[in-house]
Design a protein around this nucleic acid. Structure first.
Lengths: 147, 147
DNA sequence: ACAATTTCTATATATTTATGTTAGAATAAT
DNA sequence: ATTATTCTAACATAAATATATAGAAATTGT
């Protein structure tokens, strides 16, 4: 199975949640609450948020009254930014990003196919921002309410 | 990292190799030789070829002078067939194929994005046959020889 | 009939990666 | 000082990856 690890999945939900709280007074939310809202273990979220911070997608405020918030406006954060921070470069196979990974690359036609597929994915994730995700989210949940 | 497992990668190379030998008198090749050609452990290949056989992509001939061969012409085998046999349905996340997997699907905008991305990949792999791979292979290796 | 070759089956094992938990230190607000 | 919160490191478990072992079953050629 071609798989996106839970880091990428949970991390994206985490970021979307931060984006939704971006209108709060100081834009921030406490991880404990985010954990409840998204139903993801707070201990795991703590691990996931580290690379997001290192990649300057998220800012943290320590101590009582602290929390996390997006480092910039949701329209300025792309899905690739998030996935890159959490899972490394978007590639289906190591050999796509690392020319040294496999000696067969120069003769391997299959490699080229993985590369094209990876590139397609990359472009797609590049085209989606957190703002887009928020709009999708609003639309989807409005429909539910209307019923 | 979004990753295709080694089963899918090695399995695809295995199938391309079988395709290349499809012109042999009886279309077949012994796994031991395939293992040498592709530089993949024969023990691992034995494991990988089982699902390919179960999915009727490959035929086996037992005993001395036996071996493996494609079950049908390379133009009739698509990359999705191979990946499906080895990795299950092509989806980036479980929730794309299994509606029961996560309760949040009806409210989760992120799910929709994974679904679209998975669909893109699926269509791409659907469009490529073993015959296409062979052509790519010939082209790529001809270029090398010319140099 | 026998030996050689090869697939088939099942199990074991080592390594790595992914997933998740536990415990507590460090920081800041009240 | 107390409380809330982020931060850090270590640990635990499960799954994926890769290889190895042992032998049974089938087929071919002599």
């Amino acid at each position: 199975m071609i798989r996106l690890s839970t880091k990428g999945r949970y991390g994206t939900r985490l970021m979307l949640n931060l984006a939704k709280h971006y209108r709060n007074k100081d834009h921030s939310i406490v991880l404990k609450n985010l954990s409840k809202e998204e139903d993801i273990s707070i201990r795991y979220l703590e691990q996931i948020i580290i690379p997001l911070k290192l990649n300057k997608l998220v800012k943290s405020i320590r101590g009582a009254g602290g929390g996390y918030k997006l480092a910039r406006h949701p329209s300025k954060i792309k899905l690739t930014d998030i996935l890159n921070a959490l899972e490394g470069p978007c590639c289906l196979v190591e050999c796509v990003e690392d020319d040294e990974y496999c000696q067969r690359i120069p003769v391997c036609a299959v490699h080229d196919v993985w590369k094209e597929a990876s590139s397609m994915l990359k472009n797609y994730f590049e085209s989606i921002t957190l703002e887009d995700l928020m709009k999708r989210d609003e639309k989807k949940n409005k429909k539910i309410k209307d019923k």
